[in-house]
Design a protein around this nucleic acid. Structure first.
Lengths: 141, 141
DNA sequence: CGGTATCCATTTGGATACTG
DNA sequence: CAGTATCCAAATGGATACCG
């Protein structure tokens, strides 16, 4: 049931879907790091990536790269040599993601400390055995 | 402040930590939608939010809001009335997230279709019972 | 109205072993 | 080197019931 313009400007459902979809891709544990590394280096081999993305397991790097390849963000080039060589790089579409990711990256660098601080304040408040509520309560009118 | 030409060479570990940390917050299933709604409306009550964020359960909305409050991105104001009224809004820090989120949102709107298309191409290729490899193979040199 | 508490299914991802 | 395959633990999140 689509109400006729009665409610406020409605955010289009398809738009939300697209956003949710993309967030599911870049919101996982390793994707942004992988894209970031590829953006910096242009092209990297599997184990080069594995070394640069600190802590990623072989399994997860493979899955992350496959998903990125499937979504058209990363190219995978096989060189039929022995030992085998496989190089990963960003597609044009993948490179276009650099902007949004950098925006997020910059925000993190600028405001990460504030978030950490807010957390410790919040946690400290919870730890004060509820002696002091100190919550945000508006005065009754 | 840090080493002079280190920007290209090595990504600072603390920087990656901050980015990972923020991604863990905004990368979950509901956070971006909640922040988006609050950014649009300025302030919303719990059930108003619940109606606008399509599909969110009461539990997850509560958890999402608590995390955002803990991170200093959202304010929670209790009006001691009956029935109770609680209003949520963005903090200054929370509003500063609008930029990066919008960048991502815009990218999704612009490129969402390309990703969907890339997926179906990839999947179709996999479905061709491996008759045609069609993978990206560089010619041996 | 605005939550908690509990239970449970699904998803995610790490460790390990094996392969062409 | 660049993966697969398998197993398993932890995290995520939905459904439901109850509460001040």
């Amino acid at each position: 049931m689509t109400s006729p313009a009665s409610s406020k400007q409605k955010i289009e459902h398809s738009t939300c879907m697209a956003m949710t979809d993309i967030l599911n891709r870049i919101g996982d544990k390793w994707t942004v790091m992988v894209v970031g590394m590829l953006a910096r280096s242009g092209t990297l081999r599997f184990n080069e990536l594995k070394r640069q993305v600190n802590g990623v397991s072989q399994r997860m790097l493979t899955l992350t790269l496959r998903n990125l390849e499937r979504d058209g963000l990363v190219t995978r080039t096989i060189y039929p040599e022995i030992p085998p060589r496989v190089e990963y790089g960003l597609t044009e579409l993948g490179r276009s993601l650099k902007g949004p990711i950098n925006a997020l990256w910059d925000w993190s660098v600028e405001n990460g400390a504030s978030v950490i601080e807010a957390r410790s304040i919040y946690d400290a408040r919870q730890a004060t055995t509820h002696e002091e509520p100190a919550r945000r309560i508006a005065h009754a009118r």
